[in-house]
Write a protein that binds this DNA or RNA. Structure first.
Length: 414
DNA sequence: GGGGATGGTG
DNA sequence: CCTGCACCATCCCT
């Protein structure tokens, strides 16, 4: 076990992953320009209509994309009640706008406009500009740019392509396999929660994974004091937010913002969470104590992050440091496990002289192009290399999906 | 918590 | 006048 590449240190891992990332950049990913052009045209029409409706609802024109002008319109001209403040004025972010929905017809139009404008400007119009003469996009992947060890993707960033809603799927459908290949995605199931279960050794977390119980449902059962089978979709959604909140070191205030509930209720959720998962509470307290004492925190593979903020007199700064310390071991360990998986998988595909290749990495997921005819050989290799990086108290689990484009990936049984 | 891209602003 | 730059707010992903 100790001979896993994971324990050879971050420098070694980052050196070995370089050829993998260079290969991904060089190969790139094919994009169907026709799909993006049609999508962009459709969006252009809808955005124009929304713009007209907005000006009609207000009575005059202004720059819908200017937070400054919008704040003036909403909070001075229309005298709507301002909520959050930013450094420079009043916030007009999505959460704020949603709370004003019933107060003026302009708000609903603005929300629709923002959604479509984002898809149009950042994706439908921008991605075509990144397409090379080979009809492919060659994003740059870097291994040593983040505090936690995650990869970055830039020019363009292919790690933030939309996935939710109608527009997310339509953008992703424009990403297609090379001819003679099919897309295979392999994602680590509940990646960071399995690592948290390993680090904490919490009995409830471990048994949830052992018994294949959905982790968010299990948490919902604990914080709503119900049987797992009786949990509603809404309760599961709340529990999912609480789970991620724990992973990110979120405060009661942060959780209440995220869920749109009052501070006291958020505090209750967190209290009930730590009552049920007592070992997680113990682990986090010990983690912070160690981090303060040593000034740094470590991943499973020994990657360190120094956190001087923990010694600050300023509460905001210190709290921010505590969140970094809480989040770093799980996010950082997940990142290095994925890196080792990529190095080993890359080597294995080469060793077995396969044409199939890694195309993208999105933190807990790999997108591969699998050559026609290689599928039955590649599937077990991908699973083995990803699941086999390290044996934790909870086994790593990888789910596979297949598709003729990135927007319509379908789960497959192995 | 960790990123990158966009448009506005000065 | 224009261009480049830094910063901010916002929003997409995990």
């Amino acid at each position: 076990m100790d001979n896993s590449l994971l324990f050879k240190g971050p420098e070694k891992i980052n050196k070995l992953i370089r050829p993998v990332l260079d290969s991904m950049t060089k190969i790139g990913i094919a994009v169907d320009l026709d799909i993006l052009d049609k999508l962009s045209g459709e969006l252009r029409g809808k955005i124009e209509i929304l713009e007209k409706k907005a000006f009609e609802a207000l009575g005059h024109m202004f720059n819908l994309n200017s937070p400054k002008q919008l704040a003036e319109v909403l909070f001075v001209e229309l005298k709507l009640p301002p909520a959050k403040r930013t450094k420079t004025g009043y916030s007009t972010d999505e959460q704020t706008l949603k709370n004003l929905l019933n107060l003026h017809p302009l708000i609903a139009i603005l929300l629709d406009y923002r959604e479509l404008y984002k898809v149009q400007s950042t994706y439908a119009e921008a991605l075509p500009r990144a397409i090379g003469s080979d009809n492919r996009i060659h994003s740059i992947f870097q291994a040593d740019k983040t505090a936690t060890g995650r990869l970055t993707s830039s020019e363009p960033n292919l790690q933030n392509i939309p996935i939710r809603g109608e527009w997310g799927e339509r953008i992703r459908r424009a990403f297609v396999p090379s001819s003679g290949f099919i897309f295979l995605t392999a994602d680590y199931s509940q990646f960071e929660f399995r690592i948290l279960a390993h680090f904490t050794g919490d009995g409830k977390l471990l048994s949830s994974f052992e018994n294949h119980i959905d982790i968010h449902r299990a948490t919902a059962a604990e914080i709503f004091h119900k049987k797992p089978a009786e949990i509603t979709d809404e309760e599961r959604r709340v529990a999912k937010t609480v789970n991620f909140g724990i992973l990110y070191g979120m405060s009661p205030h942060g959780l209440s913002e995220e869920l749109g509930i009052d501070h006291e209720q958020a505090q209750n959720f967190i209290h009930d969470y730590f009552t049920s998962f007592g070992t997680v509470k113990f682990y986090l307290e010990n983690l912070l104590r160690q981090a303060c004492k040593k000034g740094y925190i470590e991943t499973l593979g020994g990657f360190r992050r120094y956190i001087p903020e923990l010694g600050s007199d300023n509460l905001m700064v210190r709290s921010s440091g505590e969140r970094m310390a809480i989040n770093f071991p799980t996010q950082g360990t997940a990142a290095e496990i994925m890196k080792v998986a990529m190095i080993n998988l890359f080597g294995r595909l080469r060793q077995e002289k396969l044409k199939s290749r890694i195309i993208l990495q999105i933190h807990d997921e790999l997108l591969l192009e699998v050559s026609t005819g290689e599928m039955e050989k590649v599937k077990p290799i991908v699973k083995e290399e990803m699941e086999g990086v390290i044996k934790l108290k909870v086994p790593l689990k990888v789910d596979l999906k297949l598709g003729q484009n990135w927007g319509e990936m379908k789960e497959i049984a192995e």
